[in-house]
Nucleic acid binder design. Structure first.
Lengths: 184, 184
DNA sequence: GCAAATTAATGATTTATTCAAG
DNA sequence: CTTGAATAAATCATTAATTTGC
């Protein structure tokens, strides 16, 4: 990778005496982009990118791809930032998505038996009830489909076992999937 | 105060007792769950849930229902995510055709005339956003009220380069968002 | 005060996923 | 099972900030 370490990247069209190695947004440009982001825009469509770009070109040289990149990066980094804050919290996606009437009714979802959720099923039920009345129970078939294992092994080099792994809490790149699946 | 999700932080799966509001997976737990998901497991059977739970309990406090929920949520969200994608993509390859000044390689894929704003992906985008007029601005009066802090604000003074716009008058504190979005 | 050296941000690329079509 | 579409994550690379010596 990084083939070609050539440095200069074509001066390009920046006639304004600015080196155009890479886009350097003006404050106004960043401001607008940020506003759009705050407004919820995350992945603008091609059309939107075009329009945004056109609009921003008023403030300075810019290309569509810059807009695209900006959103990609900003989105990713905002998330990254958030992730740093809450250690593991993988579920910090729209936590407020309760607005939807059809949430998981886990109650009658798939669980054939009843003891699966050993405890605190009450809580869950309560919540559930609050959000929506459990009126109808759909018949859901538990189609397990364990699917294939170990077909995804690619570059797994680590051969660490569970034990060693957890105590430290260290994060490794690719824990051996095979081993991890072994308990199933 | 941005509502939604006070950062719980800490506690981790260590079982530090505190804050038993909801399961807070450790990185190891998420890792394994994710691996299982990647391996193709989508709807684990009761038995599998039990085993997975047991296995994960080694890394921290967890219950069967957590596993069940995790798969439900993860599966659903992955799907939703892919469904709402909007599309933009351009050939961002290393071709570096510097010979041509502007290369808008936007591969006009622009297909799904759906929600271009894929708001429900990860971060908690304000709901107001969804009200956003995506294609045409009929009346952008989305009252966004961001409330968050701008991290971009840099007191940078030299706005040299491209636009001489910002000079003075143009630099307002809150340019009406509505207006700014009007071009979309 | 300035400019080289160092560090922090962030623009641009590459890589690895996921789901869906065929 | 293979390929296409489209990211998001990880990474590379360059520019702006900041520090430091003079």
């Amino acid at each position: 990778m990084s083939s070609g370490g050539f440095s200069i990247k074509a001066v390009g069209g920046g006639g304004t005496g600015t080196k155009c190695g890479r886009w350097n947004p003006t404050v106004e440009q960043v401001k607008l982009l940020t506003d759009l982001f705050k407004a919820g825009l995350r992945t603008p469509s091609t059309d939107q990118i075009q329009k945004i770009s056109t609009e921003l070109s008023f403030y300075g040289k810019i290309e569509s791809k810059n807009v695209f990149y900006w959103f990609q990066n900003h989105k990713a980094r905002e998330r990254q930032k958030r992730r740093k804050i809450s250690t593991v919290d993988f579920d910090h996606r729209q936590d407020t998505d309760l607005s939807r009437p059809h949430r998981n009714n886990l109650r009658h979802r798939q669980a054939p038996p009843k003891d699966i959720f050993d405890v605190s099923e009450e809580e869950k039920v309560i919540e559930t009830l609050q959000l929506f009345p459990l009126s109808k129970v759909e018949r859901v078939r538990a189609n397990v489909t364990v699917a294939s294992h170990k077909e995804y092994i690619r570059e797994q080099a680590n051969t660490t076992a569970f034990s060693t792994y957890s105590s430290c809490g260290a994060e490794m790149e690719h824990p051996p999937l095979d081993l991890r699946l072994s308990f199933l």
